[in-house]
Amino acid sequence: MIQTKSLTKRYGKTTAVDSLTITVEPGKVTGFLGPNGAGKSTTMRMILGLDHATSGTASVNGHPYAALRRPLHEVGALLDARALNPDRTARAHLRSLAATHGINYSRVEEVIELTGLRSVADRKAGSYSLGMGQRLGIAVALLGDPKTLILDEPVNGLDPEGVRWVRDLVRHLADLGKTVFLSSHLMSEMELSADHLIILAKGKLLASISMTDFIAAASDVGAKVRSPHISEMANWLKQPGVRIERLASDAIEVYGLTATQIGDAAAKQSWPLHELTPLTVSLEDAYLELTNSATEYRSESFDNYAGQGGQR
């Protein structure tokens, strides 16, 4: 359980995090979203006590981080996988961290095995690829079997097998009852992993909401319908408050009625339905819509980019 109360961080005149009050609950995966420069990494660093807050407090399992007697057992963090000496082997790095808490070397081997680093554990950490370094960071986070996990972009650089593994891992850990605090820019992965979302923009909290509520709020009520009797169906369903868009010769999109109602109506009229898909937006669309005005570093539209073309 992570709690912050009016957490603020100012660098001179710029406010990186503005009076943030959030609660990250155990037993579910909480996704931490926000545009670049929103203050996500700063918040995570303040939770871990690496940066000092200008005002406000952050606590983990009820205590500030500096007061924990076994920090690696309470919180496992992956903030930057490159936070290690590149001349040291992964095994030595893990062992040195394990030694601070009196953790047995068998646990180090266990964690190396778990993250799939067995074959490269004795190579210098500086020679690791991006994915291997990321796995080592996850190994460091899991070393003390923590009750809380704070992961900043854990799937950055991982191959699909690794991405799937991280997804299943955070799911499994959340099911065990741990608190998982996950920050990622990969919306498709976030949609699959997270149960609860905390969205930040320009240092301010935009939303702390469950995934389903967020998507439902951004979704229109409607469905895509495909049927051989599509014209009759469209005429039947037309009413004030309902908008119908023609997609293909046998498909329409109906806005304003639930899939249930359309299906019932079709069944009553004995129109066979070849497809009835309720409309939902993806997390990406819902998120971009919400943070549209709150993005600080926005890319320019490239429609007018007159660069060199490719070869003929």
Binding site: R70, H73, T100, H101, I103, G177
Partner: peptide, 11 residues
Amino acid sequence: PRESSVTVRDV
């Protein structure tokens, strides 16, 4: 969470 099977001691 269930009790951990990993022995972790104080710093």
